[in-house]
Nucleic acid binder design. Structure first.
Lengths: 157, 157
DNA sequence: CCAAATAATGATACACTGTATCAAAATACG
DNA sequence: CGTATTTTGATACAGTGTATCATTATTTGG
């Protein structure tokens, strides 16, 4: 969840990036991105339809949502979490540095997701595993399941 | 793909393991496991229905397939590849040693999958990533996308 | 500015993945 | 053997995603 001012700033940054890339962040794409940014947790495509209706009124067809999610992913503005079939806004839109391939930690209990930067040590070890198996790594993108700080406390308390 | 004799041996080993665990590898469960073992690549649940019909004749309902897949996973005889919604037989059924959590390499092109053992260095680095983010690792199970040896050659040649 | 071309969105239909529920059959067990 | 438990089947349905074609916006060249 990002507060409204911050969302505006991120949207603006996203527009700039799209301009630079020669792609267009249309009105509808902006609204879906806004829906994503306002979530605390990953959300499904159909969840986005509901959220869109709540925030902005009107129905967005599923096909449009999927297309827009595709666009956002191509432009590194959103990611799909394959382990959950859900989507989140990229947490680095407003960062000016290039942040490489996304790596995610997923809480098995509350489903919270944390996008972490490229961890050099991890990437190195992933590379080794690939090489030992005669595979070649093409992206260090990875999703790892664990349990978050908050849920750990609740469980043990 | 495993040849028929080897499959028989693996099935026997699976029966032994189930016995040890107090679970039952019923006839139908055996047949689905056999279908999995005869595949070269991961297969979808509905793909298994077709395969089952080809090999053994008769229709197995989807509900049964999913239930049996659940059983096989609980008993570490099969794994679900979350990135593809497909299933494979565990490649270590006939090994007597405990092989820990599965780690998979997936070829982005031909979709071949290699199950690799627990790589100590990788697990260590995963642990570090979790700790830095105040998550706790609960399983080093992970799926990593790359490109296999064969597809590399084809691409470059 | 207008018209044609391009891009984006909508509508409809459908395929694939998976689950819930209850009924029937098979197996275990006293 | 008969009852209890486990396993499987049948039916219905929810969730995820794509294909196709129509419609609406937007850009671009004259």
């Amino acid at each position: 969840m990002t507060n409204s001012d911050a969302v505006d700033r991120i949207i603006h940054s996203a527009e700039t990036q799209c301009l630079k890339r020669g792609s267009r962040l249309s009105k509808k794409r902006t609204l879906i991105l806004r829906c994503l940014l306002l979530q605390e947790k990953p959300i499904s495509a159909y969840g986005l339809i509901d959220t869109y209706r709540e925030y902005f009124g009107g129905d967005m067809p599923a096909t449009s949502v999927y297309r827009i999610l595709g666009f956002l992913q191509e432009n590194s503005l959103a990611h799909k979490l394959q382990l959950q079939n859900k989507y989140i806004a990229c947490s680095h839109i407003a960062c000016d540095h290039d942040h490489g391939s996304p790596q995610f930690l997923i809480c098995v209990q509350c489903k919270a997701v944390k996008e972490v930067g490229n961890n050099v040590g991890l990437v190195t070890e992933m590379n080794k595993v690939f090489e030992r198996s005669e595979f070649r790594m093409i992206t260090p993108q990875v999703e790892m399941v664990g349990i978050c700080d908050k849920c750990q406390r609740v469980d043990s308390g």
